[in-house]
Design a protein around this nucleic acid. Structure first.
Lengths: 324, 324
DNA sequence: CTGAAAGCGCTTACAG
DNA sequence: CTGAAAGCGCTTACAG
């Protein structure tokens, strides 16, 4: 049978109100407390959360929507978020959109219906539908990774990331670059990083850049790398992400190129695996974990003061290693 | 203001029952349908999930509890689970315990309260409390990674993993091994893999094994590797996990050892990054994704036939590469 | 095909 | 300190 508050009340010889008060820390005599406690234990009573939430104000849960489960950036960000939520006794619920925008929207809406106290979205793209949904939400939301007009967000300085990679190549004396980018639907990675790179390239008219359109996948990156390296010439390859860079490195090794004398490689993201390759991969560091931490703190504030707005740009920095 | 079913009914000039019926596919005249639809749209009405679930039977959600967010095994398993849930129109909610057994128990209980339709636990340890909780759950649960008496579970053949690593070392002609293990609280990784290795070692009395007690962390593994390699002798190192193996490889390179001529290394797990190192890491492959897939399928069955019981042992296989 | 009413399991003023 | 009662937003027989 189903153990309800009414059953516990009955067994304890008190009213439901009293049991409810016991559960929520209201006035109950010591005597009743112990007998109620006894029965709750005896029957393994667990309050029905739906019934509670129908009245209650706070669920002490925050929902986090991530683009995919095997993303280094997502993992790190989650760990930062988790740290602050935990210390404030909130539970973190996660939902992955598997890179489907539709599922992403659904997940956000589901969290809203579930009456979480706040939502964090690790975004890859902000569409008109996103904006509409954001405005209808009954709980605060913070977006990480992409700008969203009128909302609170934390974005990385992706423009600077592109510039920094280019500048490093330039300072090492390389004047002809291959740039492997990703699609422009991801504004931060697809557009801003590339723009940053070109801004730097324009500072010296001797610089030549060959642009290649790629995507986030390892396989596509390998294919592009094979094309680039097929001419047996030296190449300085600037990659929009570390995944791309790692794929390039793998192909270069397969073709017996020496890194960094034949082929120079730099990526962005500073994934943990950049230090496992040989040579280690030069990269641009994005403070994912700290940003997750800060965003969660900000969300906590928003939950209590919905007039606030956070729109912060997080700095990135060069981490030169062996590959360039 | 809050848009409820009552408000929509009022605006549409019908009763709440009719709106509810509209929502749930009951009898409603075409005429009323369109006017209700109109108002739902107009006011962006979204049913309160708590109120629904108070009555409803199914939530179409399954909860997955993972030990930590940055685990390769967890990621892969999740992707397998996701594939089947998605195709059956279930939503996947994830919760991480951050390796805290207490949080793990809480998360399971929370999912149960939330009336998910089923739970999958990626386990690292099964305690008495776990068993008690499992028996009290009102929804089916499947455990992956550890045996749980009386429950449905999918475990890997960890004993075989240990044996396979040892056998490979033996066949390559190495007779003196260093084995780096993890704590025994994780029965599968800590005990079974080690036992499998020793079982193989016992087949030839010339085999010597030096056992080292480590843990899952990269840092501890590096420390142990430094100890082992400090004698400047050759070493054949069998590692309970790929993380440990990767750490050993890093230290070996730092000490300018050649792999595999000075130092031989093998791990378990077949993480994706095993192919990024140079040389690539030999390992034992665990079919994480397929197991997630199968476990989710099994859960779906359990949800409709709670008498079933799944207790399956999944095979693992050697993947020899450059490091041993 | 439609609506009034009871009920899901809890919380919360309110009166005592 | 305690209990009766109303209410949270929905669903579901039941009668019409």
């Amino acid at each position: 049978m189903k153990i309800t508050i009414g059953f516990i009340a009955e067994q304890s010889g008190v009213s439901k109100s009293t049991v409810s008060r016991y559960l929520n820390g209201g006035y109950v005599s010591e005597e009743l407390k112990s007998i109620i406690a006894y029965n709750i234990k005896k029957y393994h009573y667990v309050p029905n959360q739906f019934a509670q939430s129908l009245k209650a104000k706070e669920s002490m849960m925050v929902g986090v929507v991530i683009p995919r489960v095997n993303s280094y950036a997502a993992q790190e960000t989650l760990m930062g978020i988790e740290t602050v939520l935990e210390s404030h006794h909130y539970k973190m619920m996660m939902s992955s959109s598997s890179l489907s925008l539709e599922k992403e929207l659904e997940a956000i809406q589901l969290f809203d219906q579930q009456k979480v106290d706040g939502i964090i979205l690790l975004a890859t793209q902000i569409t008109k539908e996103h904006t509409n949904l954001f405005n209808r939400l009954s709980v605060p939301i913070i977006i990480i990774g992409q700008e969203a007009q009128g909302q609170s967000y934390f974005v990385y300085n992706d423009h600077s990331a592109g510039y920094i990679m280019a500048e490093h190549a330039y300072k090492q004396g390389y004047m002809t670059w291959d740039y492997i980018g990703v699609g422009e639907s991801d504004r931060a990675v697809g557009i801003l990083r590339k723009q940053g790179m070109y801004l730097m390239a324009k500072t010296d008219s001797d610089i030549k850049v060959h642009e290649h359109k790629g995507d986030f996948s390892f396989a596509t990156s390998e294919r592009i790398a094979e094309e680039i390296l097929s001419d047996n010439l030296p190449h300085c390859i600037i990659c929009a992400t570390d995944t791309i860079a790692l794929a390039v490195m793998k192909v270069a090794k397969r073709l017996n190129k020496d890194i960094p004398s034949d082929v120079q490689i730099i990526g962005s993201g500073n994934y943990d695996i950049t230090t496992l390759s040989y040579p280690e991969l030069s990269s641009v560091s994005f403070p994912y974990r700290e940003t997750g931490f800060d965003a969660a703190k900000a969300l906590l504030e928003l939950m209590h003061d919905s007039d606030k707005k956070f729109q912060v740009v997080v700095d990135v920095s060069l981490v030169p290693r062996g590959s360039l």
